Every structure is written in structure tokens, then in C-alpha cells.
Simulated scan of single mutants.
Amino acid sequence: MAKSTWAIDPTHSEIGFKVKHMMFTNVSGKFNTSEVTIENEDNQFETSKINFSADVNTVDTNNGDRDNHLRSADFFDVEKFPKLSFVGTSVKKLNEGLYQIDGDLTIKDVTKSVSLETEYSGVMTDPWGNTKAGLSITGKINRKDFGLTWNSTLETGGVLVGEEIKLNVEIQLIKQ
């Protein structure tokens, strides 16, 4: 078997998330700088060893004040915890093109096991001769499980920031 190593193509990838704001609309954000390495045997996705990290200082919700608040000790505390990470522990094929990736997600100083649903597009060659693969990853986490507990109560009842974070990740990989 031949070992393959893959890295993220940052110009064709987005590490995104959504959270409820004021209990009725979603606010979207992303991390502008991340690293992904995947090693597998003969390009077989289910044999993948996955390592991911994001530079939390690059959080981007299209609002500078909110981004600075997210970087503060109320949320990510980037001074102490500049990266979040995910290390895959298993990849299981559910059906054609659909997989479940289990792994350990670390945010701040908390590590929890999570399961992510992943669509794998397979392998193809781009017009410049690069071998590429694509992943669409979705999942949900509770931000409070990772020590992201800041909130504000609304006058009408309820809270300003929802607990559930929906992950929406699009990754294009380049074979190294």
C-alpha cells in the first residue's frame, strides 16, 4: 500500500460555524487561518489519520467588535489558547460518499469527543495536474462543554447567544 499525505488548499476551503443570536437568527463566522493534514493508504478515505487546527485569532464574523469579544477571555481567550484543534480517532463509511469522523476536539483547555458527518467527494486531478479531494463536514457542539460560557439575559427572557454551535466546513485537499 502507498501512503498518501494531503494538506488543505486554503483558497478553496472554509472553516465555518453558526450560532443563534437573540434566540431567533443565526450569526455565521469562520476561521481564516487553519491547517489540515490527512494521511491515508492508497487514497482510501476510511484509512485516514486526520489532524486539524485553527488559529482562533483569525475568527471572522464580519463584525470587528464581535470578533474582538470572541477573542477575549469571555470566549476563546486567544492570549492563553491561540489554537483550537481536532484529532481524528476513526473514520467510518456510512454509505457511498458519506462518512462519520470521530475525534477529539480541543477548545481552550477542554477536550471532548465529537462525531462529524462528512461527505467525501473522492479524488480528481485539476487542470494544473494537482490531485485534489473535497470534504463537506457538518456537526453540532455545545459551546458550554468547552468553557465558552459567556452570555447575557434578554429583557424579553432567553439569552443573547445560543449554546449549540453548528459546524459547516468545506475543505479542498491537495495531495502532497
Rank of each mutant, 00 (worst) to 15 (best):
S53L: 08
A54V: 04
A54Y: 00
A54P: 01
D55R: 08
D55I: 05
V56Q: 09
V56H: 05
T58W: 01
T58R: 07
V59K: 04
V59P: 03
V59F: 11
V59I: 13
N63M: 12
G64S: 15
D67V: 00
D67E: 04
H69S: 03
R71C: 10
S72Y: 06
S72N: 08
D74P: 01
F75I: 00
F76C: 04
F76V: 00
F76P: 00
F76N: 00
D77Q: 10
F81N: 07
F81S: 03
K83G: 02
K83D: 07
L84F: 06
L84I: 07
S85C: 00
S85Y: 06
S85F: 01
F86N: 00
G88D: 02
G88P: 03
G88F: 05
T89I: 09
S90Y: 04
V91F: 04
V91M: 04
L94A: 15
L94R: 14
N95W: 10
E96M: 09
E96F: 07
G97L: 05
Y99E: 12
Y99T: 11
Y99L: 03
Q100K: 06
D102N: 12
D102G: 09
G103N: 04
D104V: 11
D104E: 15
D104Q: 14
T106N: 05
I107Y: 02
I107V: 10
I107P: 03
K108W: 08
K112S: 10
V114L: 06
V114W: 08
V114S: 00
V114N: 03
S115V: 11
L116R: 00
E117R: 13
E119W: 13
Y120Q: 03
Y120S: 05
S121R: 15
V123M: 07
V123I: 15
M124K: 15
M124Q: 15
T125L: 10
T131W: 11
T131M: 10
A133P: 05
A133V: 11
S136R: 14
I137P: 03
I137H: 01
I137E: 05
I137V: 12
T138H: 10
G139N: 04
G139V: 03
K140S: 13
K140V: 12
I141N: 07
R143L: 03
D145V: 02
F146H: 06
L148K: 01
W150I: 01
N151W: 08
N151Y: 07
N151E: 02
L154R: 10
L154D: 02
L154M: 01
L154S: 05
E155T: 15
G157V: 10
G157T: 10
L160W: 09
V161G: 01
G162R: 09
G162Q: 06
E163I: 09
E163Q: 14
E164P: 12
I165F: 08
I165C: 07
K166Y: 14
K166P: 11
K166L: 14
L167A: 10
N168Y: 13
V169T: 10
V169I: 15
